[in-house]
Design a protein around this nucleic acid. Structure first.
Lengths: 195, 195
DNA sequence: GTGCTCATGTAAGGTGTTACATGATTGG
DNA sequence: CCAATCATGTAACACCTTACATGAGCAC
């Protein structure tokens, strides 16, 4: 039940449609949560019937009508209650690392391409995070920012995202280099059934 | 369906019981996959009926009997097939980051404790990874190791785990410092409903 | 005129978690 | 004597993903 809480904290930035929430997720929360929109609309409906969010319909001239969701007091209370519980690292699932574990019986050229793709994705995401953090700080240094901003939470999670993507890029480079060294070697020791 | 593949690559280290597989996961794959044993036994049973693994019963004198699973040729082929597909970062879910996003309306003392707990967990995991990698390298330098080992895959994923946990510790320290600065401030700007 | 963005939902099926059920051995 | 480790499973429920369904406006 913490997709629910992820949505609640995302609404601290102000009321939003389901569509906008999924955007906010991919910009700010991408490094610690992911949602599919199908799940998102369903969960928002449940949250509304539980009184954690309220919604109002905004009729637009040209574009389709939209439903704006906002936190209720009960929603705020729920965030506080939830935050007071100890947390676990709920889950991490990274298919690329599964494949890398099996590198020694696989086609290293294809695997390396996959690593390059991951690297490119991390660079893109890193750019998004850096743009967000600059927009947020508006030229202030960290000390001033922390003293004057209303919200440090999103700043801290952005720092985490940046650290994450930087580590990802560095690892991709190193992994690609190691695999290249292995490929170059004609006399590599091999598991019988592989090439 | 990639818990299945995570299990297959874990079996590249040799035959194992369900119990041992869950151990291997928590030592080597903790940074990119997690399983509950209930799910693990169920999946192994399905994998056996699909012919990807075979099992044999080992009767032990004192301890309960155990079922040892091993990769079949079909299992190896499945790893290769899977590794050739492009991968997505399947999922990340971190409750602590959700809570940090909402920091500004929450009790910072409790949140900081949660961050400290995470830090401690990362330090522990880091120690495990470092011990594994040293056992694996047996004093060789990287170049020699890469040239002479049978398997680089687990080495690369361990490097990733180490980078991950180091980044985690560094972030925890920074986040705790920022929150401490916020708590120290009597004149902090606050969202109306919070303290 | 093609593809992207905005915008919301349902249904079915697959994956993952929690709780239950059992019990001997080993080490402190 | 108490806690941890070894060892395997089932059942119910909660959660997440994929596919389907619809449609206008805008930029190139």
């Amino acid at each position: 039940m913490s997709l629910r809480n992820a949505l609640l904290v995302t609404l601290l930035d102000g009321e939003a449609t389901g569509y906008e929430l999924s955007k906010r997720f991919s910009i700010g929360a991408a490094n610690f949560w992911n949602v599919r929109q199908a799940q998102l609309y369903a969960e928002l409906a449940r949250m509304e019937s539980d009184g954690l969010v309220s919604s109002r319909l905004a009729v637009q001239g040209k574009r389709p009508n939209k439903r704006l969701f906002a936190l209720t007091d009960a929603g705020i209370a729920e965030v506080r209650r939830y935050a007071a519980e100890p947390s676990e690292r709920t889950s991490v699932k990274d298919e690329l690392l599964v494949k890398v574990t099996g590198a020694d019986i696989c086609d290293l050229r294809v695997l390396t391409e996959d690593i390059e793709r991951r690297r490119a994705g991390s660079v893109t995401q890193l750019g998004r995070y850096q743009a967000s953090i600059e927009a947020m700080m508006r030229g202030r240094d960290e000390e001033t920012f922390v003293r004057t901003t209303r919200r440090v939470g999103p700043y801290l999670t952005l720092l985490r995202g940046i650290a994450e993507e930087e580590a990802s890029v560095a690892w991709c480079d190193r992994a690609a280099a190691v695999l290249a060294a292995r490929r170059a070697q004609p006399d590599k020791p091999s598991r019988s059934r592989s090439a």
